[in-house]
Amino acid sequence: MALTLYVDTGRWRAHQRSILADFPGLVPVCKGNGYGFGHDRLADEVSMMGLDTIAVGTTYEAAAMKDRFSGDILVLTPYRRTEEPVPLPDRVVRSASSVDGVYGLVGSRVVVEVMSTMRRHGVSPSDLGKLQAALDDVRLEGFAIHLPLDRTDGTDAVEEVIEWMDRLRAARLPLDTMFVSHLTADQLRRLRQQFPQTTFRARIGTRLWLGDHGATEYRGAVLDVTPVGKGDRFGYRQQKAPGDGWLAVVAGGTSHGVGLEAPKALHGMTSRAKGMARASLATVNRNLSPFVWDGKQRWFAEPPHMQVSILFVPAESQGPKVGDEFKAILRHTTTQVDRLVDE
């Protein structure tokens, strides 16, 4: 009995092919938990696509990926002199986000990240004059810019890239290759038309692997079902059942990422009201689970355990049976499954 990720493989790969067509020369991103699929699976998928480069998050991921993927491996986390050294082959390309970082990568293949309106990390415009000398001792693979997902001020992502291209050109730095993140296919075409001598390579993770929501589904298997009456005590904390129904023990607990929720940026009164309502219910131990049964998202009977969750199913619903599966609405990047099944 397991928490399973079911993949409609034909549909999933058809989506990948559509992204490849829209973003020629793309660099697939495989970091963290491999977007729910795992690094082994995504490395195989990239190899089948015939692409020459894959991007990972850290040097530790690169060290593992070198045995899974035979092409170039781009490390997205920028180099710091204080980092623990990790033995890596020459086909690993490091990112640098400061002049000092470039100086620390003598002899290495390097992509230089510039500071975007994300303001996360990157070389600032004022440091471009110092960059030329530092680049003499590395093998420059190109520059990179990581753009924000939302632009609430109405600014244009393409114009931001153009501003940086103009700065790099004014500093007499090479514009052979620019790695970009979070641009649409139309935006990328605009840049290619304006800078025909530059190769633009889109780094894409979420849109590539998770862009077709209907191609994947999580399901947790039912391990046990116990009937309860209103007021019956149960569980670690001996809480009372809110009504007649069943306690369903379903595969999927904290070790899988069930119950883990990342903070969300709320926009508008409706989303804020929903957030306040959820917080109010939580104060009286009413927490909605990610599991769906009989067409409705079900409540946790108590906080999820390490490998299972106990859910309350009211008597007016269809009664679950051992071996049934509850659909689960889970975030791919925080979920670890017991198994992946291709359908």
Rank of each mutant, 00 (worst) to 15 (best):
G229K: 14
M118V: 02
K31R: 10
A241H: 03
A265Q: 12
I19T: 01
G38Y: 09
G245I: 14
M276H: 06
L20P: 00
R207I: 03
F326L: 12
T270H: 11
Y236K: 15
Q336Y: 07
M269V: 07
R81I: 08
P85K: 11
R109C: 08
W293C: 09
V110A: 02
G275W: 14
E325L: 04
H146M: 05
D324H: 11
A43C: 13
P78Y: 09
G101S: 10
F37Q: 10
A277E: 13
V308P: 00
A2P: 07
I310L: 15
A277T: 09
F300D: 01
G101M: 03
D212M: 06
L330G: 01
H332W: 00
V27P: 00
A279C: 04
G319Q: 15
G25E: 02
G211K: 12
A215F: 11
G25C: 06
R11P: 03
G214Y: 12
S317D: 15
Y60V: 08
R167K: 14
G205W: 08
Y103F: 14
Q336W: 07
V75K: 08
Q307Y: 12
E45V: 12
T82R: 10
A241W: 10
T226Q: 15
R17D: 09
Q197S: 15
V341I: 11
G295A: 08
K31G: 03
I19Q: 09
P196K: 02
S255G: 02
S126K: 09
K327Q: 07
G10E: 05
M178E: 00
D212I: 03
R80H: 14
D224L: 05
P196M: 12
